[in-house]
Design a protein around this nucleic acid. Structure first.
Length: 503
RNA sequence: GGCGCAUUCGUCUAGCGGUUUAGGACAUCGCCCUCUCAAGGCGGAGAUCACGGGUUCGAAUCCCGUAUGCGCUACCA
């Protein structure tokens, strides 16, 4: 295996190198990508590199398809990767199972230097020890039995071929300082740190060793990770010392909490990232929203394009307090991004949602696919500012496409009106509309306002009846523009049907 | 239990010793606009800056306690 020591081959100034290192143990929710986003933004802000590495040392929990899933997520969010699995790079491989020998090499090195030792304790003994400690209300911790094995005992264990793990020999006194750029210096007593396992009995490294070896070899300069790692950070600092390696800059960012104030997790109902795609959220809106989850620019700016974010993003403006993620605000932001979309983009991006089967939130199955892009452009022009998600469109505009609309007769009859009066009003409207020279909304409004006056109706009453007749709805885009798009034939036909319903 | 991190409107946040009667955004309420629904505009309500002590002429801002929340405490990451 040829490896390049990234940290030592580039003396002096190093281009920032940051990584996203998920473990493929499940499908990620958007909170998980927020940390990746910070790394990506900083890499792009500084002209550095963004690396993706798979932390797959836990074979038992590895989930099929997980790597594909987050690869797609990065793509969807527009986070391009400089090095990583399936892409390659100078510091590969980028999957930890393929780097097994490397971890063993450094573990051995530490055994030789006295910074680590082989532990022959069985899982059963460990379990029992933990139970006893808990019963005595003591902090559960390895009792370091194998650290003090005599040479004879060691030889006997080796001769017997006993399986072993490798543990890190933590300093027995003193303290460890973790320099964190967000939290400042965090000081830990070494007596609170135990001799954790760094190599499992099967020879594979644990996260504590593996991530650090990789970060070093891959020349990672800034480690941005969730604050759930703070507790183990002093252990990582100690391993760096034992290996005589430089500690990267740590940024422990707050976890994202759900409504229940617990760490966002799939088990607690946090949607997968793909849910947002499926529901018709725009990746640029999700990206913007995610960036604001624990990071802020100033006291007012919160809408940023990706380019603006790259320009504005600095690590020092990441906050330290955990925040509850607010789906309402994301929904608002998505609506805002939809409104700002050029119409042509909106159409091409919305049509796939509309063409989905009815059962999946698309238009009624009776509507012919594929949709006419030109007609749909005219339809969506009227609906754009009313949409919160792309998926909303199908329901909002279905009456533009249906041959038969169904509705309750009650909605035809407006306040302070009766069936006969409504029928009469619709008849007048029908006659007028049928006689128009050109079918343009600008030609409709003024005459119909006059008509309302003549009929002794409020415009709201007349327009409301016509609206319901033509759409089967009570909430629609502006009436005349809607009728223009529907066309004369459909409009008149639907008014006729409404009149028939009231007879 | 131990160790650690955090604590400004319901929520996200600005604030880094005096410019603050604590600013913005979402949500909420009201008004305006208006053919409905939105969008938009204007305005209201909403935070004794967790609490208690210090330091200082002066603290949301610095220090120390307490409380609460969260995280870690695996041959998981």
């Amino acid at each position: 295996m040829t490896q390049i020591d990234g940290a030592s081959t580039t003396p002096g100034y190093r281009v920032p190198r940051l990584r996203f290192a998920p473990s493929p143990t499940g499908f990620l929710h958007i909170g998980a990508f927020r940390t990746a986003l910070f790394s990506w933004l900083y890499a792009r802000h500084t002209g550095g590199q963004f690396i993706v590495r798979i932390e797959d040392t836990d074979l038992a929990r590895t989930v099929e398809g997980a790597v594909d899933d987050f690869t797609q997520a990065l793509q969807w969010l527009g986070m391009d990767v400089d090095e990583g699995l399936n892409i390659g790079g100078l510091y590969g491989p980028y999957s930890q199972v393929q780097r097994k020998a490397l971890y063993q090499q450094y573990a051995n090195q530490m055994i030789e230097s006295g910074h680590a030792y082989k532990c022959y304790c069985t899982p059963e003994r460990l379990d029992q020890m933990r139970k006893e400690q808990e019963a005595k209300k003591l902090p559960p911790r390895y009792d370091r039995r194998c650290r003090y094995l005599s040479e004879d005992e060691k030889a006997a264990n080796i001769a017997a071929g006993l399986p072993y793990t490798v543990r890190f020999a933590m300093p027995l006194e003193g303290e460890t300082v973790v320099h964190d750029k967000l939290h400042g210096d965090m000081i830990f007593k070494n007596t609170d740190l135990d001799d954790m396992i760094i190599l499992k009995a099967d020879g594979l490294a644990l996260y504590h060793l593996a991530h650090l070896v990789d970060d070093h070899l891959m020349g990672i300069t800034h480690v941005i990770r969730g604050e759930e790692w703070i507790s183990s950070a002093p252990r990582h600092v100690q391993i760096h010392k034992a290996l005589n390696w430089e500690v990267p800059e740590y940024y422990h960012v707050p976890v994202v909490l759900g409504k229940d104030k617990k760490k966002l997790s799939k088990r607690r109902g946090a949607p997968r990232w793909s849910e947002y795609k499926e529901q018709g959220y725009l990746p640029e809106a999700v990206f913007n929203f995610l960036a604001l989850l624990g990071w802020s620019y100033d006291d007012k700016t919160e809408i940023f394009s990706q380019e603006e974010l790259i320009k504005a993003f600095t690590l020092d403006r990441i906050g330290v307090a955990s925040g509850i993620y607010d789906p309402d605000k994301l929904l608002w932001m998505n609506g805002l991004y939809i409104r700002r979309l050029p119409l042509a983009d909106l159409v091409t991006r919305t049509i796939p949602y509309m063409e989905r089967p009815e059962a999946e939130g698309g238009l009624p199955d009776s509507v012919q696919r594929p949709l006419d892009p030109e007609y749909t452009t005219r339809v969506l022009a009227l609906e754009q500012e009313r949409l919160k998600t792309l998926k909303d469109a199908a329901h909002a505009v279905s009456f533009f496409y249906e041959d038969e609309i169904s509705y309750d007769n009650d909605i035809l009859i407006q306040k302070k009106m009766d069936a006969a009066g409504t029928r009469d009003a619709l008849q007048h409207a029908r006659t007028f509309l049928a006689g128009l020279d050109t079918w343009e909304h600008t030609a409709m409004e003024t005459p119909m306002r006059e008509m309302a006056t003549q009929l002794n109706l409020k415009t709201g009453q007349l327009f409301g009846s016509v609206r319901s007749a033509v759409s089967g709805r009570t909430a629609t885009p502006p009436l005349f523009q809607m009728m223009e798009v529907l066309g004369r034939e459909v409009t008149l036909q639907r008014i006729d049907q409404a009149i028939a319903r009231l007879s």
